[in-house]
Simulated assay, not measured.
Amino acid sequence: MITVANRIFVHPSYHDQFEARFQDRAGLVDGMDGFIANQVLRPTAEGDPFVVLTFWRDRESFEAWTRSDAFRQGHAKSGSLPKEAFSGPNKLEVHDVVQVTGEVRPQ
């Protein structure tokens, strides 16, 4: 299993709009082969990024998603926020999962 973390720096005045994009998302990734889960993490300290965290069976499944028509459709709304909403470039990180304990559910 892998995780893919997309760290997205958003100006505080656009936080609500950014979150709304995910609440209204198309959900196309949910049906992709190898997809496990998606989490959107809100920063608690000013200047920190949002983290969009996805869990995949393997890297091949994630890469197939990024090449799919569903990916292009799911990201078609990405231009809905103006360029000034973002305070820096995104940073994509891929990690192998070496241990999992417990279950995470929002409260």
Rank of each mutant, 00 (worst) to 15 (best):
G102Q: 12
A45I: 12
Q107C: 03
D24Q: 15
E93M: 13
I2T: 09
S80T: 13
E93P: 01
D33C: 05
A37Y: 13
A5H: 14
Q39Y: 15
Q107P: 05
A20V: 01
P43L: 05
Y14P: 00
H11V: 12
E84R: 11
G27S: 09
P82L: 10
N90S: 13
D30F: 14
A37C: 06
R67G: 10
G47T: 10
A64E: 06
A76H: 08
M1C: 02
R57T: 08
M1V: 08
N38E: 14
G79F: 11
R67C: 06
I8K: 01
A37R: 15
H11C: 07
V97F: 06
D58T: 11
D16N: 05
Q17Y: 06
L81N: 04
L81Q: 07
L28E: 05
Q23P: 00
A76C: 04
T101F: 09
D69N: 12
V104C: 00
Q39K: 15
N90K: 08
S68K: 10
L53P: 03
R57I: 01
E63H: 04
S13C: 05
S61K: 02
R57V: 02
F55V: 04
T66S: 10
A45K: 14
R67S: 14
E46L: 10
F35M: 12
E103T: 15
L92G: 11
L53N: 07
M1A: 12
I36G: 04
H95F: 15
V98G: 01
P49Y: 04
E19V: 10
R7F: 11
R59S: 05
R72N: 05
D16F: 05
R105L: 07
P49E: 02
D16P: 00
Q107R: 11
D24I: 12
V4E: 03
S68M: 04
E19W: 02
N38H: 13
D69F: 07
F71M: 09
I8S: 02
P106A: 02
P43A: 03
L81W: 07
H11T: 11
P12I: 06
D58R: 08
L92C: 09
G88L: 08
F9Y: 15
